[in-house]
């Protein structure tokens, strides 16, 4: 082992680090982080620090990417509440328009690497309560204009859906305000 060999091996480290920094998708970045950890362990072992190499492989690669994968998976998700008869919803039971809505939402969210998760509720009251209690980020209800409409309480999701989907989207605050004015009008003019 002469100096040139060591230099070539060590130069792999900035190369893989550059690959990691230039990565946009969080899941792809996690895999590249694993590669960086493997290369770093090699460099440490070649430079004579066997203990550091072992720690890098154990903690830096195995533990950290597993924990990060769990964290990214549970945070980059939009929970959409729907009303269903059963506990779960399978792809075959979905009506035609609903499947189209789901695929449109998925395409819109995919640009930002966000997943879509469906949460099922038994009736509309439970769905509204869940939205109020911050259990879901948005709800999907049947509407008069175009089969389904989406109500969301997150401003950024509202902007994304407004720009990228054909289905009507509304803010939760607006829906609540509209309901309150309707109730006030009813009580004023019975």
């Amino acid at each position: 082992m002469n100096n040139t060999d060591i230099l070539v091996i060590v130069s792999l480290l900035p190369l893989s680090a550059l690959m990691l920094v230039l990565q946009v998708n969080p899941y792809h970045a996690l895999v590249i982080r694993g590669i960086l950890g493997a290369v770093a362990a090699l460099v440490y072992a070649v430079l004579g620090a066997a203990d550091v190499a072992l720690t890098e492989a154990l903690v830096g690669t195995m533990l950290s990417i597993t924990l990060y994968a769990v964290a990214v998976r549970s945070s980059l998700v939009m929970r959409l509440g729907v009303v269903t008869e059963g506990e779960t919803l399978s792809e075959e039971e979905m009506p035609e328009g609903f499947g189209q809505l789901l695929s449109e939402l998925r395409t819109a969210l995919k640009k930002y690497h966000v997943r879509l998760e469906l949460v099922c509720y038994v009736n509309e009251e439970a769905l509204e309560q869940a939205l109020q209690d911050h259990e879901v980020h948005g709800t999907c209800l049947p509407s008069e204009i175009k089969e389904y409409q989406i109500i969301t309480r997150i401003e950024r999701l509202y902007e994304i859906f407004q720009a990228d989907t054909t289905f009507p989207v509304s803010r939760w605050e607006d829906v609540v305000a509209k309901k309150l004015t309707q109730q006030a009008e009813l009580s004023l003019n019975p």
């Binding site: 066997a50 072992l54 492989a57 597993t66 994968a69 998976r73």
Partner: peptide, 24 residues
């Protein structure tokens, strides 16, 4: 010393790969 660490890393690399694959 480096040899033992190499063997450990050889088995660990696959373990982390399997954990990550299960999540993905």
């Amino acid at each position: 010393m480096i040899g033992v660490v190499g063997v450990l890393i050889l088995s660990l690399g696959n373990a982390s790969l399997m954990l990550l694959a299960q999540i993905i």
